[in-house]
Structures are given as C-alpha cells and as structure tokens.
C-alpha cells in the first residue's frame, strides 16, 4: 500500500519535529504527557510503515479515484477563506448571505438560468433571515457586527 508508506513517513517526520520542539518547554512536568503521546505515536507510525511495506499489495487500494474535481474544490476553499476575511468587516449575517449566494452560483455555474440564480439568492436570504431571527433576536447570541446588523 503505497498510500500508507507516504502517511507513515510524513507522520514520522512530524513526530520527530514535535519531539525536538519539546525542549522549548521550561517546566519538566509539562513535558511528561506530550512526550509519552509523541513516543506512542512514533511507535504506531513505525508499525504502520512496517505493515505497509510487509503486507504490500493486500486489499483494495482505497475507493476508485474517479477524477478529483480540483478546480471546484479549490474554488470552494478560496471562497471560504474570503468569507472569513469579510466576516469581521461586513458582519456575520451579511457575509453569510453573500457567501451562500456566491458559493451556490460559482459551484453550480453549469446550466445556470436567471430563474435558478434568483432561487439561490432567495434561498440564501431565507436561510440568513431564519438564522438572524432565531439566534440574534430570540436568543441574543453575539456575532461579529458589521455594516448592517
């Protein structure tokens, strides 16, 4: 299983880096527990490596790939980051509404008609409105404030 060889190597590298970073902590008592966990993790990673090298070729290799939609995925990822960026500036509810609309329009751009687009804007508005009434008005939950709410 080549996948597991990759995982266990990455894990081992991480474990070693973390183990070295332990020396940054000044209270020896604070180090006990993380050290034990890191050591156990190291042993487990070695086991995984051994298993993946020894039991090669056994079992089906994950699910069928089927082509990873990289464009769509990275689009979504970037939009979420943009959403975080605007959340503290525009306020929670406005940015949530905009995110909802933009995400549904961008990710579902194939075969988009005006009618469908309007439906998505409406859905976004309804969703944010329900959130607003339930949590802001009825339960007084604090969210980042912005230009409107």
């Amino acid at each position: 299983m080549r996948k597991d060889i990759v995982v266990s190597s990455v894990l081992l590298a991480g474990v070693i880096a973390l183990y070295l970073s332990l020396s940054l902590m000044d209270d020896p008592r604070a180090v006990i527990f993380p050290r034990v966990i890191i050591l156990v993790m190291g042993v487990l990673s070695l086991l995984l490596l051994a298993q993946s090298v020894l039991v090669r070729g056994k079992g089906a290799e994950g699910e069928a790939g089927g082509g990873f939609p990289f464009g769509r995925f990275s689009g979504c990822f970037v939009l979420i980051l943009a959403y975080f960026f605007f959340m503290e500036r525009l306020g929670f509810y406005v940015s949530a509404f905009l995110f909802f609309v933009v995400v549904t329009l961008v990710l579902g751009s194939r075969g988009l008609t005006i009618r469908k687009g309007a439906g998505r804007v409406a859905a976004g508005a309804a969703f944010t409105a329900v959130l607003y009434v339930l949590f802001n008005r009825l339960l007084a939950v604090q969210t980042p404030k912005g230009i409107l709410f």
Binding site: C76, Y83, M87, A96, F100, V103, F127, L131, F135, P144
Partner: peptide, 26 residues
C-alpha cells in the same frame, strides 16, 4: 449545492458562538 453553503455558515456560526472567538474559526 445549498447544503455546502448552509453547513459552512452553520459551522462558522457554531464555532464562533462558543466563545466569540475568531481564532476558533480559523
């Protein structure tokens, strides 16, 4: 499509409202 948007917004909302921390969202 709607699920993606709604779940993301709810996840951010739920996270933020625990202790009003943007760090938690990140």
């Amino acid at each position: 499509l709607f699920m993606i948007a709604a779940v993301t917004v709810l996840a951010v909302f739920g996270t933020y409202s625990v202790q009003n921390s943007f760090d938690d969202v990140i």
